[in-house]
Design a binder for these strands. Structure first.
Length: 187
DNA sequence: CTTTGGATCGTCT
DNA sequence: GACGATCCAAAGG
């Protein structure tokens, strides 16, 4: 957390993430092994794993861990830093700055990240994660991950306390999707 | 501010 | 064939 996601003029500070531990984590896309979709998660750390969900949204993860071990961190929210005009252009419906990157599918939209960026090298590519000297929050806030049904008790969502761009209120008061329902907001 | 329900299609079973 | 690591508009307070 607090690293920068950079693409051209667009810069955002990572203020909310979720951890996904491939083989040991039933909520991970990699839990049931390698598939064409999740292959990037099994590769080298520092690459982008991008997936499509709900028939219309893209979400982006930073691949972590040793080559061959699938684990990743979902980017859930950014604080917009530079290039806000371009972000607004990509998200015409955003009324306030906090609407630009305050959710996993919002930030990919603001940064124009789609299938094209799946597997991108974040160390030297078009999309980059950079360290400008701001360390992680101490202490960081944490709670259950959003929108999953399995392993929902694990507190593997992390965020910067008090940041207005965090995708859900820090109260942790969000609805959990009952088993069997579909397509509704996990909120 | 909160609650509700619709949109929409790739992916894996 | 079922469902999802979501977002948004609409409506009520």
């Amino acid at each position: 957390m607090n690293k920068l996601l950079i693409r051209g003029e667009r810069v955002g500070r990572i203020v909310e993430v979720e951890a996904y531990r491939g083989a040991e984590d039933p909520a991970s896309h990699a839990f049931r092994g390698r598939t064409p979709r999740n292959q990037v998660m099994f590769g080298e750390a520092g690459h982008l794993y991008v997936y499509f969900t709900y028939g219309m949204h893209w979400c982006a993860n930073v691949v972590c861990g040793p080559d061959g071990v699938a684990s990743a961190v979902l980017l859930r929210a950014l604080a917009p830093v530079e290039g806000l005009a371009l972000m607004r252009q990509a998200r015409p419906g955003a009324r306030k700055d906090r609407d630009l990157c305050s959710g996993p599918a919002k930030l990919t939209q603001a940064f124009g990240i789609t299938r094209e960026e799946d597997g991108a090298d974040l160390m030297k590519g078009d999309v980059v994660v950079a360290d400008d000297g701001v360390g992680p929050p101490r202490p960081a806030a944490r709670g259950p991950r959003v929108g999953i049904s399995l392993a929902a008790e694990e507190a593997w969502r992390w965020w910067v306390p008090g940041d207005v761009n965090v995708s859900r209120a820090e109260t942790g008061l969000y609805r959990r999707r009952p088993p069997g329902t579909r397509g509704k907001d996990g909120g």
